[in-house]
Amino acid sequence: MTPPRSATRGRPPAASRELLQESAFELFVENGYTGTTVDQIAMRAGVSRNTFFNYFEAKGEVFWVELDAATERLKTALADQAAQPADATNAIRSAMLAAVAPLESQHVPFILTQYDLIGSAAELQASAMSRFATQARLLTGFAQRHGVDSATARAQAYSLIACVVAAAQEWAQSGPQRGRLEPYVARAIDAVLAAY
């Protein structure tokens, strides 16, 4: 016989990054970002505080599950590319599109649609910037290994990351019929690459 769940916990103890993320977002809507603690998130998810820290280093990390997964897909896609120096730009474009390809309408980052509930949180901006810098390093390194000089590679990488950010903002603002992120990113990247 299964023991009854504690009345203070609303979910079974099975944990995942997604369950903790969902619990955090519910609490951010109810209490705001600064009014929500890690203990509250863990309790809402029905897990211990230690379990939370098995998945995330800090409260603000819950915003980046999809972005972290996209970075892993970008690493894989870049590794799979066998581009020659003249084709580095197209290889990077393909890898970036592969990284965002799985993102459907339901994957819109909470932070893009609920920013007013979060407020200006410097820790969130810093953690986002560190992730974008990681992606830019991946793109820069790939381009350099394929014959692009470092200054051009870095400028192109940050320009392309900006394309993804702009595309994601447009995607988030497009409402429930927005569809997949990939076409938004393709349009933004193509507009910038036309200038190179």
Rank of each mutant, 00 (worst) to 15 (best):
T113Q: 11
T113W: 12
T113G: 10
Q114I: 03
Q114H: 15
Q114P: 06
Q114Y: 14
Y115E: 13
Y115L: 09
D116T: 12
D116W: 09
L117R: 11
L117D: 04
I118V: 09
I118G: 00
G119R: 02
G119I: 06
G119Y: 00
G119W: 04
G119A: 01
A121M: 15
A122N: 03
A122L: 10
A122Q: 10
E123C: 05
E123R: 03
L124R: 07
Q125T: 15
Q125I: 11
A126W: 00
A126E: 05
A126M: 02
A126K: 07
S127Q: 13
S127K: 09
A128C: 05
A128I: 02
M129Y: 14
M129Q: 15
M129N: 15
R131H: 08
R131N: 06
F132N: 12
F132M: 13
F132R: 08
F132P: 02
A133C: 03
A133E: 12
A133N: 14
Q135M: 12
Q135E: 13
A136N: 02
A136P: 08
R137L: 01
R137V: 04
R137M: 03
L138D: 08
L139I: 15
L139F: 14
T140P: 03
T140G: 06
G141H: 01
G141I: 00
G141R: 05
F142G: 00
F142K: 07
F142R: 01
F142M: 04
A143H: 07
A143L: 07
A143D: 00
A143G: 01
Q144A: 04
Q144K: 12
R145F: 06
R145A: 12
R145S: 07
H146T: 11
H146A: 02
V148G: 00
V148Q: 04
D149R: 00
A151E: 00
A151L: 02
T152Q: 09
T152W: 10
A153E: 01
R154E: 12
A155R: 12
A155H: 10
Q156L: 15
Q156W: 10
Q156V: 13
Q156A: 14
A157E: 11
A157K: 06
A157V: 07
Y158S: 08
Y158K: 04
Y158L: 05
S159D: 13
S159A: 15
S159R: 13
S159C: 14
L160E: 11
L160P: 00
I161W: 07
I161L: 12
I161G: 11
A162E: 08
A162R: 07
V164W: 05
V165P: 05
V165F: 14
V165Y: 02
V165W: 06
V165A: 12
A166G: 15
A166C: 12
A166P: 09
A167K: 04
A168N: 06
Q169W: 14
Q169F: 13
Q169P: 07
E170I: 00
E170D: 04
E170K: 08
E170P: 00
E170R: 12
E170G: 10
W171R: 08
A172P: 02
A172R: 03
Q173H: 15
Q173T: 09
S174C: 03
S174A: 15
S174Q: 10
G175T: 02
P176H: 02
Q177M: 03
R178A: 07
R178C: 06
R178G: 08
G179R: 09
G179E: 11
R180D: 10
R180W: 11
L181Y: 08
L181Q: 03
L181I: 04
E182L: 13
E182R: 07
E182F: 00
P183I: 09
P183N: 03
P183L: 10
